[in-house]
Design a protein around this nucleic acid. Structure first.
Length: 255
DNA sequence: GCCCAGGGTGTTT
DNA sequence: AAACACCATGGG
């Protein structure tokens, strides 16, 4: 892992608060913490307790890739294309909101929305703004969020924030429930369907078997893996999904 | 001006 | 169950 390959993990569509600076360093934020990663402090950041957990440093991704290579040659190719890609341990609430806002939206605009949300309704720790707590969004009106550019998703976000603020969701429980039950809890929230629920499960709750199926993945499955289903990729299907998503977005000529 | 973007919801066949 | 309209916004 170096500054150039860090993008495989923080700029692959699973998070929206990382930005590469002109000098090659990365400025990133997660939950209520932020960091600037340079060539000098990279290994230090990755051994810090919080960021090591965030980057899932305790997991052997090489072993997962080898399993994928044995499973399917094209999946193996996608995995080898981004050997430093890891599934982040994001804050569940932040991940849920981010992907609720992602529907019918592009990554650049999602990043702008999340940034404005943090600056406007997060708590500022110096130059770093935290992601707003559910309680901070629950008291807003739909119009407040439309003013930030959330569009029709504003009502979904306020509605979901109110449900979470009143304790309707137990994120810790969602880590342990069978996947389909956890998914049912999430899709009961306004604006949360199957795809957003899978994103919250994979990126926020580290359920590595969850397989978000967006427009890119539907295309990729049809073209690259005809006749195969997410379950065929096993207990790490979500990791496979991320390799495929990243590979597909960097090879648009395939579609 | 048009098309699309890591979809969800409600309604109609 | 599958198809459809509608939902806002801005980047390319």
């Amino acid at each position: 892992m170096n500054l150039d390959t860090l993008g495989q993990t923080v700029d692959c569509g699973q998070c929206f608060r990382w930005e590469r600076l002109p000098d090659g360093s990365w400025s990133g934020a997660a939950g209520s913490r932020c960091v600037q990663v340079t060539g000098e402090n990279l290994s230090g950041v990755l051994s810090d307790a919080f960021w090591a957990d965030y980057f899932d440093m305790g997991r052997d991704y090489e072993a997962i890739r080898e399993r994928f290579c044995a499973l399917d040659p094209i999946l193996g190719q996608a995995a080898r294309y981004a050997p430093d890609l890891r599934i982040l341990n994001q804050d569940p609430w932040e991940a849920l909101c981010s992907f609720l806002l992602s529907q019918c939206n592009n990554i650049k605009r999602i990043k702008g929305l999340v940034s404005r949300l943090c600056k406007t309704y997060g708590e500022s720790n110096g130059a770093c703004a935290s992601f707003p707590r559910p309680e901070a969004l629950a008291v807003l009106s739909e119009q407040d969020l439309r003013a930030l550019g959330c569009g029709y998703r504003a009502g979904y976000l306020v509605g979901t924030a109110r449900r979470v603020a009143e304790g309707a969701l137990d994120f810790d429980l969602l880590r342990r429930l069978p996947l389909e039950e956890a998914k049912r809890e999430l899709t009961a929230l306004p604006g949360v369907g199957p795809k957003v629920a899978d994103c919250a499960l994979l990126y926020g709750l580290h359920r590595l078997e969850a397989f978000p199926m967006d427009v890119w993945m539907k295309r990729a499955m049809k073209v690259l893996f005809p006749g195969r289903k997410p379950e065929d990729f096993g207990e790490y299907a979500g990791v496979a999904q991320q390799y495929i998503f990243h590979y597909s977005r960097n090879h648009p000529e395939l579609f």
